[in-house]
C-alpha cells in the first residue's frame, strides 16, 4: 500500500512542480524512489513533527500541495494542534500521510500502535479522513486528495497488502465500495470495514459464507465524510451491520456509522468490532494483535456467528 502511494506521488510530483513531500526523518527504503525522482520537491524536516506540520501549512499558504509523511502517531497526535490550527482552519492543501495505521508496528510496542488517530482526526472540522483498504484504493486516493484542496488525513497500512477491490477505477472521497453481494441465505449480515483490515474482513466473509451466512461487504476508504447513502440503503435491507476497524471503538469508524444509523430510525442492529477501549500491552505481530483484540478473520467470524445464535 505504501509503495503504491509513493509511486503515485512520484507521478503526481512529476506532473506538478507544486507538489511537495516533507518527511519527519522516516521512510527509509520507502521514500527513496521519490527523493531520487523529484529531489527538489522533497524535504526531510528532521524528527520535529510540530515544525514539519507548521512548515507544511506555510508552504501550502504559498500555493504548494503538501504531503507530510511519518509513521504511527507521529504525523497526527504529536502535532494535532498544528493540523487543527495551522492546516485545517486555514483550509490549506496539506495531506497528512501515516504509514502504520493500527498494529502494523505491533511488536514495537504501544507507542507505535496508531489506534486513536481516526477518532482524533475525524473530530477536526474540514479534515477528510481517508483509510484505504488495499493498494488499489490507496493509489487512487492519493490522486483524489491532492486535487481535493483542503486538509486530509491519509491513513495507510504497510507494504504488501492483498488487492481486494479489484474492479475499482474511480475513487470518490466520501464513497463506500461494495466488495461482495450477499448470497441468498436465510441468515444475512452486512459487514463494513475501513482501512487495511479489509483483507482480514474479506477472509472472514469467505468463512461466513461457508457457514451459511450471506454477507454484503463494503469497504469504506473514507471515514469522513461518511457515506450516509450507502449506510441508509444497507440499514433498510439488513437486520445486522458489523463494522470492523483496526482502531479503538470509541470515536472511529464504528462510531461514525453508529451516528448515522442512530439518526435513521431503522431497526438494524449495529455491532462495532475494534479495540475495546484499552491500550494493548501485548507483544506480537500485527496478525497476532489483531487476533488478541478480536479483529482477525477468525474472531470476526465468531462475533458475527454469535449474533445469529
Amino acid at each position: 500500500m505504501r509503495d503504491t502511494v509513493i509511486r503515485e506521488l512520484v507521478n503526481l510530483a512529476k506532473e506538478d512542480k507544486n507538489i511537495e513531500l516533507i518527511t519527519g526523518d522516516l521512510g527509509f527504503g520507502v521514500l527513496r524512489p521519490y527523493w531520487e525522482s523529484v529531489p527538489n520537491q522533497f524535504i526531510n524536516a528532521g524528527i520535529a513533527e510540530q515544525n514539519l506540520t507548521g512548515v507544511a501549512a506555510g508552504m501550502a499558504l504559498e500555493g504548494k500541495t503538501v504531503f507530510t509523511y511519518s509513521i504511527a502517531n507521529f504525523p497526527t497526535l504529536r502535532c494535532l494542534e498544528q493540523i487543527r490550527n495551522d492546516c485545517a482552519y486555514h483550509k490549506v492543501n496539506v495531506n497528512v500521510i501515516c504509514v502504520g495505521g493500527g498494529y502494523v508496528y505491533g511488536a514495537l510496542g504501544m507507542s507505535h500502535h496508531a489506534t486513536e488517530d481516526i477518532a482524533c482526526l475525524r473530530a477536526l472540522p474540514e479534515v477528510a479522513v481517508i483509510c484505504p483498504g488495499d493498494p488499489i484504493e490507496a493509489g487512487l486516493a492519493v490522486r483524489a486528495i491532492a486535487k481535493s484542496g483542503g486538509t486530509t488525513y491519509l491513513r495507510l497500512g504497510r507494504g504488501g497488502e492483498k488487492r481486494i477491490n479489484t474492479s475499482l477505477t474511480d475513487f470518490v472521497i466520501g464513497k463506500a465500495y461494495q466488495i461482495r453481494k450477499a448470497k441468498d441465505f436465510s441468515k444475512k449480515a452486512a459487514v463494513f470495514s475501513t482501512g487495511a483490515i479489509l483483507e482480514e474482513t474479506a477472509l472472514a466473509c469467505d468463512m461466513l459464507e461457508e457457514l451459511g451466512i450471506g454477507v454484503e461487504q463494503y469497504s469504506f476508504p473514507t471515514v469522513k465524510p461518511i457515506d450516509r447513502e450507502t449506510i441508509a440503503d444497507v440499514a433498510r435491507r439488513f437486520d445486522h451491520i458489523f463494522t470492523v476497524e483496526e482502531h479503538n471503538i470509541v470515536g472511529g469508524f464504528g462510531s461514525a456509522v453508529a451516528e448515522t444509523v442512530a439518526e435513521l430510525g431503522e431497526r438494524v442492529k449495529l455491532h462495532r468490532l475494534g479495540i475495546n477501549d484499552f491500550y494493548c500491552a501485548e507483544v506480537g505481530t500485527q496478525a497476532y494483535l489483531r487476533d488478541v483484540v478480536g479483529i482477525s478473520a477468525r474472531r470476526i467470524v465468531e462475533s458475527v456467528g454469535k449474533a445469529f445464535e
Binding site: 510540530q50 515544525n51 507548521g54 501549512a57 506555510g58 501550502a60 499558504l61 490550527n85
Partner: peptide, 16 residues
C-alpha cells in the same frame, strides 16, 4: 493564539 506555531509557518513560507 496558540504559542509556538508562527515561526514554523513563517519558515514554510520562506522556504516556498
Amino acid at each position: 493564539g496558540s504559542l509556538g506555531h508562527g515561526l514554523c509557518v513563517a519558515a514554510g513560507r520562506a522556504l516556498a
